[in-house]
């Protein structure tokens, strides 16, 4: 095979694979992209029922309810609005009141949010970035010297350890 033909082959193969991959990526991205909503955004302009979205905020102290059948329901807030989240799975170990969390799921017709995944992380200074941005935009949370603390008196963290029993 000549050099030119080989070049042609390689270019054609690379082009084909790239086009297929790009098509895959674009269609997958369109289907799999999940938008983030803060409670205020939900109150203002809610996503259509059934659409997969992420919501997030600070877990309201005292809002966590653990039904005897399993799972947990709780409320998140960004200071201006609240969302009640129903979750049938096991909460992550790092979940606690007063902490920022992100939940993925969908709203039903009656605007209850049923989560399929709950992401939480415990690091004194950690806040999921989308939650941090939503809270900053709502003016509910300010960064003070790189040590983010909720401005309100949401200090439910003390009671969190009680879940071990």
């Amino acid at each position: 095979m000549t050099k030119a033909r080989r070049r042609l082959w390689i270019t054609a193969a690379a082009g084909a694979v790239l086009i297929i991959a790009a098509a895959l990526a674009v269609t997958a991205m369109r289907d799999a992209m999940v938008f983030f909503y803060s409670p205020a955004m939900v109150a203002e302009n809610p996503p259509p029922p059934g659409q997969r979205v992420r919501v997030g905020g600070l877990v309201v102290a005292g809002s966590v309810e653990r039904p005897a059948s399993g799972g947990a329901n709780f409320t998140v807030t960004d200071g201006s609005a609240e969302i009640r989240i129903l979750y049938a799975g096991a909460l992550p170990d790092l979940f606690r009141e007063g902490q920022g969390i992100v939940a993925e799921g969908a709203f039903d017709e009656e605007f209850r949010f049923t989560a399929s995944t709950v992401l939480a992380k415990h690091d004194e200074t950690y806040m999921p970035p989308e939650v941090a941005r939503a809270l900053r935009e709502s003016g509910y949370w300010q960064e003070e010297g790189g040590d983010p603390t909720p401005v309100s008196s949401l200090d439910g963290a003390d009671a969190a350890g009680s879940s071990a029993r």
Partner: peptide, 8 residues
């Protein structure tokens, strides 16, 4: 803001 998860 969006997230891209396992389905993608």
């Amino acid at each position: 803001m969006i997230s891209v998860g396992p389905p993608y």
